[in-house]
């Protein structure tokens, strides 16, 4: 069992957990993820490791309540335990000195972005971070990202905080200002990563996206996380989760995310019905 040491609600429906998993804490690197199973009947879900504490033997995870399993998980409290945590999985981010790196995070993808920003900064890069959210309330990790970035730009879709607009638009602005950019890292909703890839494509700026593919085991056994990258089919769990964003077939990934919509809706109906029953 993997005990939850602390729980913090970062924004509506966004929760940060510190979970006891010393083996994972010891061997994980930025960009890697875990697969967890909350309890016996739960599904296995992949989540990126946001941070770790070697001394306490904990890893930090950020969960957005966006479906049945993440809803159940968000209800876990300090002192509760997760049944299974497997990791670290996937290839770590390549932490070289590239020069100037622009990191674009959207929504809860910012959680995945944080350890990468931190690592890239430690590797000696100049890091410009664009932290985007739908509105001010949903913005996370502003302080943490500010501490590890050379420059932090905030965007909100509705303009309630920072610049009104999308991360990709701000990135276009930086390019238009003739800023020398050696690498772009985009992590967030698939649509947002696709938009970033389209911004950098004409300028041939190397761009990396971290995919949140559907997985079961996370160890290369199921192939549920298949992604078309150029002419090749890759497994996001073992070959990724990061890929060259100019080669990823994002449309295919978006379609894959909708494949279980019906099942998801059924499960959510169950939750709503249960909540209503409790109320009455």
């Amino acid at each position: 069992m993997y005990k939850i040491i602390s729980k913090q609600v970062l924004a509506p429906k966004i929760t940060r957990f510190s979970v006891e998993a010393p083996e994972v804490a010891r061997s994980r690197k930025p960009g890697q993820f875990i697969v967890l199973r909350a309890d016996e009947t739960s599904e296995r879900i992949p989540l990126t490791i946001v941070d770790s504490d070697l001394e306490k033997g904990t890893i930090d995870l950020i969960i957005q309540d966006a479906g049945f399993s993440t809803h159940v998980l968000s209800g876990f409290e300090e002192g509760d335990a997760l049944l299974d945590v497997l990791g670290p999985l996937g290839k770590p981010t390549d932490m070289e000195k590239f020069g100037t790196v622009v990191c674009v995070g959207g929504g809860v993808g910012t959680a995945v972005l944080y350890p990468i920003v931190k690592g890239l900064k430690e590797a000696g890069n100049k890091v410009i971070t664009i932290n985007g959210a739908r509105n001010k309330e949903l913005l996370i990790l502003e302080k943490e990202l500010g501490e590890v970035s050379d420059e932090l730009i905030i965007t909100t879709d509705d303009g309630s905080y920072g610049i009104k607009g999308f991360g990709s638009t701000v990135l276009q602005g930086l390019i238009d200002e003739k800023k020398k950019i050696d690498l772009v890292v985009a992590i967030g909703p698939t649509m947002m990563m696709r938009a970033v890839a389209e911004v950098t494509r004409p300028y041939k700026i190397e761009t990396i996206a971290s995919l949140n593919a559907i997985m079961i085991d996370g160890t290369g056994m199921c192939g549920g996380c298949r992604v078309t990258v150029g002419d090749e089919v890759k497994f996001a769990c073992v070959d990724g989760p990061e890929f060259d964003a100019h080669l990823v077939d994002f449309d295919e990934q978006i379609a894959k995310h909708h494949y279980y919509d019906q099942e998801q809706a059924c499960q959510m109906d169950g939750i709503i019905a249960e909540a209503e029953q409790e109320r009455s």
């Binding site: 079961i216 056994m221 199921c222 192939g223 295919e252 379609a255 494949y259």
Partner: peptide
Amino acid sequence: ENLNGICSANEFLTRVNLMK
């Protein structure tokens, strides 16, 4: 082969057997 609805036997059987 990467269309929705196409999976490996490993994925299908893992969903059914391991994940019940």
